[in-house]
Write a protein that binds this DNA or RNA. Sequence first.
DNA 1: CTGAAAGCGCTAACAT
DNA 2: ATGTTAGCGCTTTCAG
Lengths: 338, 338
Amino acid sequence: MSKVIIDDVAARAGVSIKTVSRVMNNEPNVSERTRDRVLAAARELNYRPSLSARGLAGSRSYLIGLLYDNPSPAYLAEIQAGLLEACEASHYSLALHPCRHEDPGMPAAVSAALAQARLDGLIITPPVCNVPALMAAVEERGVPYAVISDEAGPSGFAVTIDESAAMRDLTEHVIGLGHTRIGFIAGHPDHKGAARRRDGFETAMRTHGLGIDPAMVVQGYFDFESGRHGARELLSRSNPPTSIIAANDDMAAGALQVAHDKGLHIPTDLVIVGFDDSPLSRQVWPPLTTVRQPVADMAREAAARVIARLTGAAEPDNPADLAFPHELRLRQSSLGDT
Amino acid sequence: MSKVIIDDVAARAGVSIKTVSRVMNNEPNVSERTRDRVLAAARELNYRPSLSARGLAGSRSYLIGLLYDNPSPAYLAEIQAGLLEACEASHYSLALHPCRHEDPGMPAAVSAALAQARLDGLIITPPVCNVPALMAAVEERGVPYAVISDEAGPSGFAVTIDESAAMRDLTEHVIGLGHTRIGFIAGHPDHKGAARRRDGFETAMRTHGLGIDPAMVVQGYFDFESGRHGARELLSRSNPPTSIIAANDDMAAGALQVAHDKGLHIPTDLVIVGFDDSPLSRQVWPPLTTVRQPVADMAREAAARVIARLTGAAEPDNPADLAFPHELRLRQSSLGDT
DNA sequence: CTGAAAGCGCTAACAT
DNA sequence: ATGTTAGCGCTTTCAG
């Protein structure tokens, strides 16, 4: 029961190993009856083709790599969950490849790892997918890939939400509350998404005739601590904001903590909103108004597309990059008690 | 540059492929000079042995599997980070295997996956490692493994902290603050660690002559929502607690939110403490007193031991299960402003 | 200390 | 629609 190989299945089904191979790979040119017999034999023997052998003989490794750099745990977990759903459905495995996006040697290292592990496909998350040298290396290798971003190279897919529009919606919600003095804690400068979100904020402000006060925009890095810093800066201005928009939830939570420390009541004294609808946004007090981004769905789709390319499945009708819908989540940090 | 194989290296170094193989695997019986030449050739050619070929020829796949069931994202991320450190150091890859611990078919499915992917080793986290049928299946397959728990089967390693002692320390901290009416939100009943933590709580209470009031202990499931439920229950008692100990941080954060909703001031009106020192414990307000568990270190050690078994490295001096130190993290949820 | 030969379990070309 | 024959790139015998 421990080491069933293709010959065993072939023998039991009374066919050649090639036929078994055909059946296991869903290739055409196998009669219905034969296919059924092979499948039955495989099931009875509990046969699973060896990945190593497949990888060596074919060119496929049945491995999809995930390239990431120190994302928030919640984001990482959601990405992985989505990818795994798609992978499992197609009998692919997921291999993790953390890396450091600022490391100049990273693209070369990734390229080498690609060659060694013979990864069939790659999923790349920000900010790694915003490193031109890396993307060039990936393109050069010719590996099918998808980025969780709004822009892929010629041979890749991109899945994303319209981050600019999402931040515009969020900002307009705050403006709709009557705020005119709105602080903004920007995201990590290496993330393209951070720039998009900032654009959205500025567009909304301008559209509503509010203008951008440079003193109301501070640099953050998507982490909790930078949210604390940013909020402290904003709140120490001579004319402090009445609301703070953070480019993600972690920073918004940091701002929230600072506000509490200062004895400010949320949302009465200060409105704080975040972005991502992370678990944290629901777990702080008061819960944060934020924008939901269907990360798991996006990841699943990214993996599904890469796998579709691999298996030569028909390309989806819409081969263009895919934009997912976002959704405002209004909570007490902007609305008060309900 | 894209497809360097062992023959290329052998040719360049002027040796046979077997010698190259020896060098790449750190086998003995290669002269210093030959080894150097081979290494030089490999480096110049940027040679990476193919994992598939290695897996097929040898018995090793250079893949370590991580078996887990829906843990908190923070825990998962920390576990993965620790495992990856150890894996990378030894050129192993990590394959993710989420599963559902209550699924009766899970052990069989895992066993099949083990056979197919030829995983060399396994790391198993709670509550999966608390499923006897799964552990039996793993033992039967004879795969080296480690559990993040306090008890492994005959062929496995266990890495853990002394959860009972840790919870005892935490409870004693609260008792030391002068509390006598202490509520406890227990962890998931399927986690052995949850039982240990509960033991620690009860031991501390008894040791200090406080006894266990059944009305002060409620069942939780390690998730935020169950922390909210538990806290609501406890605080609705006719004689509510003056402090709440939750078996993990997520539940403590839930309790915190409920307390805030009720207008209670923390820690003046109610002390709340958690367990795990998760990022969340630092990101809520006020920050939670908790117990640090060096999860990443534990995971790294778990993977390192499994890999050591695989590579036939000398077993560490202390082959027994490994207990890591825990550490109290005192924060404002029990101490007030400093 | 080193090398030659024989597979590992599968898929890719060709048969048939 | 099915079978036969070669390898894939490496490690494992077993010889030197």
